[in-house]
Simulated scan of single mutants.
Amino acid sequence: MKELNLNIFPSVSKEKWKQLAEKQLKGADPSAKLTWLNAAKIEIEAYYDQEDTANLKYLHDFFSQINSHKWKLYEEVQVLNAKQANEKILKALMGGCDGIILKVEDDQILGPALEGVDRTICDISLISSKEVDSVGLNGFKNTVNGNCLYLGQKDDPIDQLVSSVSKISNHSYLYRYAFKDFFLEIASIRALRFLLGTKGLSNIHIHTQIRIHESTEHQWFLNTSSAIASILGGSHSIDLPTAMGDSRISRNVGNLIREESGINEYSDQCRGSFYIEALTDKIVNEVNSKLK
């Protein structure tokens, strides 16, 4: 096979792009015409290149030093009936899940619900509005009274990160919801990991829950795109509920992403993307300005 000579392609610069864009826009200023605001109220330009990442060595240095990790697929199960919950839990674990998030209010049925589950090889976590006996569980505890910071469905990305960084003290886990914007989701988690790292909290487990869309058809795409974005950003675990409540499809989406895409291990795969690097930097600066 003949080796490609990449030097035959003309060099491109932001200035050249602006000239071409201005011509195609019939004299209009590309910066004014094509710039828009994303969900974080951050200005997004139509074109990014190496000029936009020239001063981002601090991000490169940070992400080059953090350890990679394998992300985990979780499934949420509501425990109302021990037998029914047990069937769902076993089916989820046999279907490829690495852990279960149990929504439970009565610790009397917690034991029967976990019958046949080897808790040493999977993560079992609790969500409850009251204290529940969690002896023998190795995941995050009660999100209200335990060691997991539950953020709720905050729609403002900057607000979510400000809450995360300012309230994470004395917690080991962070439970957040994904954003629908693919690139914003990646950059938000990268920014979160950097901000936590500057506080010596790089070991915080970040769990991301995919949001439910009002359209069942749209949810199929959102489950896949949001999950991939969350993984690329650096989430340690994800949960992909469907609008129709079909757990089998959720598990299959997660397993396909892990087995077919090859992104089963996080190691900052998005480093080098001019847009994502620049967006991460902007989010970090916005959050830091709010925290002052």
Rank of each mutant, 00 (worst) to 15 (best):
S13V: 04
E217I: 03
E43T: 01
L114M: 13
V104P: 09
T216N: 03
Y177D: 11
I44C: 04
A54D: 01
Y266G: 04
S273V: 02
N81M: 08
I238H: 07
D281C: 01
L222S: 12
L222V: 09
K282Y: 01
K154W: 02
G139C: 13
L174E: 04
Q50R: 07
I257W: 07
T216F: 05
K141I: 04
Q153P: 14
A227E: 10
S128D: 13
E76S: 14
R193M: 02
S235Y: 06
Y175N: 13
L174P: 01
I101P: 06
D107H: 12
G116E: 15
E51D: 10
R251I: 12
S225E: 09
E259F: 00
V117C: 09
N147Y: 11
T53E: 02
V77P: 05
E214I: 07
G152F: 12
L192F: 05
Q78S: 14
T35A: 11
K18E: 14
S31N: 13
K292I: 00
S129D: 15
E115D: 12
A227M: 11
L102D: 11
Y150G: 12
I158G: 03
K33I: 02
A40S: 04
L149D: 09
N255F: 02
M1E: 03
L110W: 14
Q50L: 05
S202K: 07
D159T: 11
A21Y: 04
W220N: 11
P10W: 01
N223R: 10
A85N: 09
E87G: 03
A178P: 00
D98Q: 07
S202M: 00
T143W: 07
K91G: 03
L137D: 13
F62P: 04
R190K: 09
N288T: 01
H213A: 10
P10T: 01
S163W: 06
G116R: 14
V253W: 01
Y175H: 11
Q19P: 00
H171A: 01
I121C: 14
K141H: 13
D61L: 07
E105K: 11
L59Y: 02
V135G: 15
N7D: 06
H218V: 09
I89G: 10
A46K: 00
M244R: 14
P30W: 09
K130R: 15
S172W: 00
S11L: 05
T53Q: 00
A21K: 05
L56W: 01
A191V: 02
V132N: 10
L90C: 04
S250I: 03
I249Q: 05
D98Y: 05
D29C: 10
L59A: 01
Q153I: 13
K292V: 00
S31L: 09
Q84E: 15
A178H: 02
V132Y: 07
A113Q: 14
V77C: 08
V284G: 00
R190A: 03
F274G: 04
A92M: 10
Y266M: 02
Q24G: 07
Q269E: 07
N138Y: 13
H207L: 05
H207Y: 02
R271V: 03
L222F: 11
